[in-house]
Every structure is written in C-alpha cells, then in structure tokens.
Amino acid sequence: MNPDLVRDPLPIPEHPVTPYLRMERIPHVWCPGCGIGTVVKCFASALERTGVDLEKVSVVSGIGCSGRTAGYLRLDGFHTTHGRAIPFATGLKLGRPELLVSVVSGDGDLVGIGGNHFIHAARRNLDLLVILINNFIYGMTGGQNAPTTPLMARSSTMPFGNFEPPFNLPHLAASSGAPYVARWTCLHIRRLTWAIEEAIQRKGFRFIEVIAPCPTLYSRLNKLGTGLSGMRFYHDKAEIRHGADTREVAIGFQEPIICGKFVDEERPTFNELMDSHYGKVLGEKYVPMPAEGGYLHG
C-alpha cells in the first residue's frame, strides 16, 4: 500500500457538514457501524437543501442512543426525559408557533415508553417533524427487547427469542392520524435526505421511520454480523413501494423491509385548527399566541 496515499497530501478543508453539527463534540458516542450518524448526516443535508433559518429550528430528543442526536446538531437542542420528547416538543411548538420543531429519537423512546404521547400528537396533527430511528432494540441500556423487536429475534431480556408481536410503525402512525408517513433505511441516504427535506416543508405530524443497524447489540445478539452486514441486508432485502398500504409493511425477523412514502396528505394542524376555530367563535375578541411566542417584554 502506498503510504503517502494514506496520509492525504492536501491540507484537509473543513467538512461541509461543519455548520450543522457541534464539531467540538465529534467523534460522537455511537458505535462503529451504527446507522444513527448517517441519519444525522441526512438530516443536516436536508436542512441545508431546504435553506430553512437554522435559528428557528429546534431538535428534541429523548433518552437512548438516538436520543443523543439533539446533542450533536447545531440547533436549539433539547435532550429530555425518556419518552417525553414529543410532549416537550409540543410545548416548544405551542409556546412559539413560528419554530420548526423536530423530534429525533429511537424506537424504544418514541413508541415504547413514549407511545401514548406519540399517538396523541399524531391524532392532534401537531406540527412536529418526527424522525424515529428504529434499530429494533433498546441499544443504550444493553440490548433489551423493544416494542419493535421482530418476532423470534433475541434480545437481552428475550434470550430465548422474542414472542411479543411488535408494532408496525407506519401503520401505527397513519392510523393515529399522521398526514405524512414514510420509512427508509439508512442505506437509502438520498431518498432519506429527500424525504426529510420534503417533510420539513410539510406541516402537521410528519413521521419518518429509519431502519438502522445496531452492530453492538441487535446484530451481535442475533449473529447478524456488523453494521455493514446490516447495510448489505437492506441492499438486498429492502423493497421500495411508495403508497403501500401501511397494514402490509410490518417487519419480520430478517424479512424484506418495505420502504417508501406511504402517506402524504394535507390536513390542518393543531395550531391551524385552534386559530381558525377560535377566530370563528370569538371573532375579533380572539388574540392568538404571537408567532414569536408568549414572552412578555420586560
């Protein structure tokens, strides 16, 4: 191997993602081959492509591996309690309606402990962009069974194989009322970036599930190899079926993963419903929450 090829001869310019990340905190905590970093990169690219005012973007994360995302994005970042990212984000959105509020967290956090808040926020069509990184397991705490762990997959708390039927997340989101529902894997880096870009410009409860490999826990406990093996699995077994009926996109253990944009509707958001209703009922007596929020100037 040519040694000087290894040490790149040119002085390395700044990585293009630098403006979007807290570079002083890189390298991050995620394991080699974990897909979360790729999702973060796609999110940063989507922000760049939409050209939104980063000063008005908030990212809220809960607890878990994916829950560390808020700590790495150079936005107003909130690392909240386990399962409560969505209600916390609800407060941000209602407290200052002009904000673009996003939630990036994991499957255990958003639909495990946080499931109740997930379905209610979708029901209300709250104006939140929710990116759920699904690695089929509770990773941070050492590989316990999750509400998304496929049947017969092993986890540290289902050592004989999981017998609990998991959620079908797109179906859960769609049936709860989410107007935008999509699923990609973190191999689909272009489509995931476009999906996030598209979702940023939508309003209401936008839900994107991203399947990511978890080499250290899920893959190891199920002898599925490295993160790269996971990516290869997506390469071979992911099928893109836009508009698929969400009832048919459940995920079986090591079975094909149906990806695509399943739901893309337009429905008034919670804020719009509130404003139009109070406007109608109270007429000019109605004083809405200012876009800039309820901060009373000193």
Binding site: T80, P87, F88, G91, G95
Partner: peptide, 20 residues
C-alpha cells in the same frame, strides 16, 4: 394533554420559548 406526565413535559418545553 393526554396525561400529567405529558403536561409537565410540555410546560418545560413551553417555558424554553420564554413563555411563562
């Protein structure tokens, strides 16, 4: 909200917008 847990989380989030 859907429960008191969510209510308290929302209050913390809301306060971070400067809104009492």
């Amino acid at each position: 909200m859907e429960d008191e847990l969510a209510s308290m989380a929302a209050v913390v989030g809301g306060s971070w917008t400067g809104t009492k």
